[in-house]
Design a protein around this nucleic acid. Structure first.
Lengths: 254, 254
DNA sequence: AAAAACCGTTCGCAACGGACGAACATTTAT
DNA sequence: ATAAATGTTCGTCCGTTGCGAACGGTTTTT
């Protein structure tokens, strides 16, 4: 049921990208190891490694190939182009300090949420998620906050592409539930995560919208034990929306 | 006089890498623009973009292709694997606070220095360099500190590869001067940059050596007006070497 | 110490992949 | 409405690329 019209692609490039992905998982690998794992011939892998090494995308250090530091440079340029990055960073640090909880910012890309920045207050929970990680939109507050400000068509597209996987008993798994939830979010201006992704973890998120377009969302996460009652229902939503507004205003200047 | 034995490489991959590099410089480009700039046919570029987009290395946003956030993820894994990263960060922040100046850490890769972390004290100079940037080794204190702890063969190789370009009247431009300087650095344990790269900018650097191998170097930079006399000749060198030692010791545990 | 195993590297060869360019859509500008 | 520019598709032909086997070099096994 692929919605993708599948343009023509370049197999050779695909091989190199597979190798890069492999090196991302396994730290330091030799030619033979790569060749066996990905089922290419040694010769093939060799010429690809030569190309990647020549362009400094991988480094060979005592017989093992690793991803090079070039990705730091690339990441830096990507960050620089998210003009709001500095504003986000500043405001989120403050939010984390005020709430004492974990504060995060994410953007949407390819129908998933990408974590851009995370900063912890004193009591902050330690989640596995870190910068660059991707997550489905329908099961986290950040994601729902962003989807609430997209065209219905786009939302349909995303559902089509990624489905609505169930993670806990509270996860939204039907189209109807989801659209109803998005409507609610639009009305109140913020989104909850009621342990929909991880049992015991609750979040509150608000979208960041500039020029009518949602550029991301920020959230605060914490254990169900602290995220309840008035704090969860009113205080945190207020803090989160206020921070979102600050970012919206400050990001006008760039 | 390329020292590279030039293994067989994959042209198709080279094209994709060229495109990525192009997108790194120019933010947001269309098919035609890329095709003209790099002198490939539109059809070629199209299929490469399809491949890169499918693997989420680029994103198409209202008609323009950009580098995706995937590089954040890649950068994060690369950082995680520099086990010393956290130690460096902590110690450099302290060094910057103590000295009030700009503190930096770099590693060598492909015969050049790659900046890994930078942090500024109150008075810190604002240099153009930022994380991921590369610099030649012979003209900066960080680079000379690292070279001082490499085999002579390796140093020769680097000279061969990158030459000894002149930036200011103080830049070291001959093999003899360089080797003499490296000898001095080995004796005293730290390296100076006497406005060898940028007129008016001076630095002091110390190498970080673990298990007999140089894993990087750290430096402090500032204007010639503040970097002189006893401060420049004694205090800063001492601070820098002390920090390097702390990192060496703390990075044993990983 | 010999032998076996393993690794990276090179190279010839056949085949299929990919770059080109023209033509067709589609959008934007005039 | 016309024109210009951009993205997309596709047939074709050449050349690249992936394969497999073989070669040195190093390490491990017996």
């Amino acid at each position: 049921m692929g919605t993708t019209s599948t343009s023509r692609t370049v197999d050779a490039v695909q091989i190199s990208l597979n190798i890069i992905e492999f090196l991302q998982e396994r730290d330091g690998a030799g030619i033979t190891e790569i060749a066996e794992a990905l089922e290419y011939s040694k010769g093939t892998v060799h010429s690809h490694m030569a190309t990647l090494a020549e362009n400094e995308y991988v480094v060979k250090h005592d017989g093992l190939y690793r991803l090079s530091l070039r990705y730091l440079e690339l990441a830096e340029t990507v960050k620089d182009r998210l003009q709001i990055y500095d504003v986000v960073r500043e405001e989120l640090d403050e939010l984390a300090a005020d709430s004492g909880e974990l504060a995060q910012f994410a953007t949407e890309e390819h129908g998933r949420a990408v974590y851009i920045y995370k900063t912890g207050g004193e009591k902050a929970v330690q989640t596995a998620s870190s910068v660059g990680d991707r997550e489905y939109l329908h099961c986290i507050s950040l994601g729902k906050a962003m989807m609430a400000h997209m065209d219905d068509d786009r939302v349909e597209e995303i559902i089509e592409q990624h489905g609505l996987a169930e993670f806990t008993s509270s996860t939204i798994t039907t189209r109807e539930e989801l659209f109803a939830e998005l409507e609610t979010i639009r009305e109140q201006g913020y989104a909850f995560d009621r342990e929909e992704k991880i049992e015991g973890l609750r979040c509150v998120a608000a979208p960041v919208v500039t020029k009518g377009e949602v550029v991301g969302a920020l959230s605060v996460s914490g254990p169900a034990s602290r995220f309840e009652g008035e704090v969860y229902e009113e205080e945190l939503p207020e803090m989160v929306t206020r921070s979102a507004n600050v970012i919206e205003i400050n990001s006008q200047f760039s």
